[in-house]
């Protein structure tokens, strides 16, 4: 294994182990999402959703749940000296970026595995659109992971950490949200899924992911210097 791969694997394993032992992020994200569904259930006063309303509800909820996770992804590094240890270690700095993005991606995947079925039980009458939605979820997770890691590492060393993450992240993910809701809307139509413009939206998602993975990978070095 290359040194990069070793560092990557070590950080991912460390983060997953910490999360399994402390349960700092994931339970909060899941609980938040489910509570938000309940609020939408009464706020919208509907028992069944479809089309653009359904995709709006699921994506808004996932976005805000993701913000909770993004806020905390670098917190242990800062509070318990992880950054210093990493700076001392003779490994490539982008390994930390890649590992944190991978961990965030996994968190989001677990979150969605739990929360999307809950959403379907709460609101959907037609379930056949959920299978193709997996592609949209995966691509959007990648975008969240890359951008979230970048923003979180920028915000974690500032005074107004919890405030800055949503402030910086929300405008940046608007295109991601447009593409994700655009792709999901017709999948959740009441009469079964249809694939109008589906490919185009996936292309936008892929392009967005690609660009921000590259940007994050390129600039992350400078966020670790001290």
């Amino acid at each position: 294994m290359t040194p990069f791969g070793q560092a990557f694997a070590a950080i991912v394993a460390k983060d997953l182990r910490t999360e399994l032992r402390t349960m700092r992020s994931l339970p909060a994200m899941v609980l938040f999402a489910v509570t938000t569904f309940v609020i939408f259930r009464f706020g919208l006063d509907r028992t069944a959703l479809s089309g653009s309303l359904a995709s709006g509800v699921i994506w808004t909820t996932l976005l805000f749940a993701a913000v909770l996770g993004i806020n905390r992804i670098f917190l242990p590094e800062r509070e318990e000296g992880g950054f210093d240890a990493f700076r001392l270690a003779p490994v490539d700095r982008p390994a930390l970026f890649a590992a944190k993005a991978a961990v965030l991606f996994l968190y989001l995947a677990v979150l969605e595995v739990i929360v999307v079925p809950v959403f379907a039980v709460f609101f959907l009458q037609e379930w056949s659109g959920l299978a193709p939605m997996i592609v949209v979820l995966l691509l959007t997770n990648l975008g969240f992971a890359a951008l979230g890691t970048l923003i979180s590492s920028m915000a974690v060393n500032s005074r107004a950490r919890d405030l800055l993450v949503p402030l910086l992240l929300l405008p940046l993910v608007v295109p991601l949200m447009i593409a994700a809701t655009g792709a999901t809307t017709h999948l959740l139509d009441a009469g079964g899924p249809s694939y109008d413009k589906f490919g185009t939206w996936l292309l936008v998602l892929g392009l967005y992911d690609g660009i921000f993975c590259l940007v994050g990978y390129a600039v992350f070095d400078f966020l670790l210097e001290d």
Binding site: L150, P175, I178, A179, W201, Y208, F212
Partner: peptide, 20 residues
Amino acid sequence: VFAITAGAFVPLNFMAVRMA
């Protein structure tokens, strides 16, 4: 870093929004 990220975001955002 913010300026670079946001600078890359400007054209991308226009493209994505124009798709809608």
